[in-house]
């Protein structure tokens, strides 16, 4: 029994990690006032590029780095359109999704069905990894999980206790006021979009390098959109993102747990999407609170 619990929890952590990475990135992007709906596309591109590089070089860390860079590169398109040109952020984000899914399909076709020979090795953290139950669940994961946790803590600290944090939040709340204080609004927003892109790319790499260790078209399966919902759910706070991400990680694992019970796999596949809707609707009950937490100028282009 204990081994089942451990395995479920371990898998929950694994399934939640890409969601956490993506959500953290989107939180930073949205805190600066830019809505990036292109997560799904950036994740797909990260997944495919990470996979190709790992497959050819045999070194997952190269794959991870490539995914990160590709995420940044493609998100720079959205940054250019929505920050520099002041274009419609919704449409630009959708275009980004289409482009990312398209390119990843194009590049990934030769690699469909080829399993990865190497993978990210789990890292056994000394002492902590030996704690019963907890150690096995939390401290014997692979690098993705540790990176996500460290980044989450860093972002929380950055936003609440540093000068940059104040600048990023101000740009999302009232860009003109920030500009009058000598802040380069476009620069801050541009960087935040790129940061979001890097994390989405990394989240994608997790899917193809750690979660499934292979490339299939549609590997992201709507996770990019779930990430956007989780961003709202976490009220744009990095620490709250942990709760949301691992909750949804659990729902993904639940699918596999329930399968042997004879429930239709199609119905189980619906679960994460229904849960996403449910979470958003539940959040709507405390609508006032959410409205006050939301960056005031989210989605509004800033042109002087």
């Amino acid at each position: 029994m204990e081994s089942v619990i451990i395995s479920v929890l371990r898998r929950t952590i694994v399934a939640g990690t890409p969601l956490l990475l993506g959500t953290l990135g989107e939180i930073m992007t949205e805190r600066s006032g830019v809505l990036n709906l292109g997560i799904e596309g950036m994740m797909a591109l990260g997944a495919v590029s990470g996979f190709i590089v790992t497959y050819t070089t045999g070194e997952p860390w190269f794959g991870l780095t490539t995914a990160l860079v590709m995420g940044m590169l493609i998100s720079s398109l959205h940054a250019f359109v929505s920050v520099k040109l002041g274009g419609n952020q919704v449409v630009s984000g959708l275009a980004l999704t289409m482009l990312g899914l398209g390119i990843s399909g194009l590049w990934g076709k030769p690699f469909i069905g080829k399993p990865l020979a190497v993978k990210m090795q789990p890292i056994h953290i000394p002492v902590l990894g030996d704690i019963p139950l907890l150690g096995e669940v939390l401290f014997r994961q692979d690098a993705f999980f540790y990176i996500a946790v460290v980044l989450g803590l860093c972002f929380w600290f950055l936003l609440s206790h540093t000068r940059w944090g104040i600048e990023i939040r101000s740009v999302g709340e009232y860009p003109l006021a920030s500009e009058t204080q000598g802040i380069n609004v476009h620069w801050v927003r541009f960087s935040c979009v790129l940061l979001g892109g890097a994390l989405a790319g990394m989240a994608g790499a997790h899917l193809s390098l750690s979660y499934s260790k292979s490339w299939t078209e549609g590997i992201t399966a709507g996770r990019g959109w779930i990430v956007i919902a989780l961003t709202i759910f976490s009220l744009w706070r990095p620490l709250r993102a942990f709760t949301g991400a691992f909750l949804f990680g659990g729902i993904f694992v639940l699918q596999y747990l329930l399968q042997p019970l004879g429930i239709s796999p199609s119905f189980l596949a619906m679960l994460p999407y229904m849960a996403t809707l449910g979470v958003l609707i539940a959040g709507g009950v405390k609508r006032e609170r959410r409205r006050l937490q939301e960056p005031a100028m989210l989605g509004e282009p800033y042109v002087r």
Partner: peptide, 8 residues
């Protein structure tokens, strides 16, 4: 018009 961020 004050350049102040109301929520901060």
């Amino acid at each position: 018009h004050f350049m102040l961020i109301q929520n901060h």
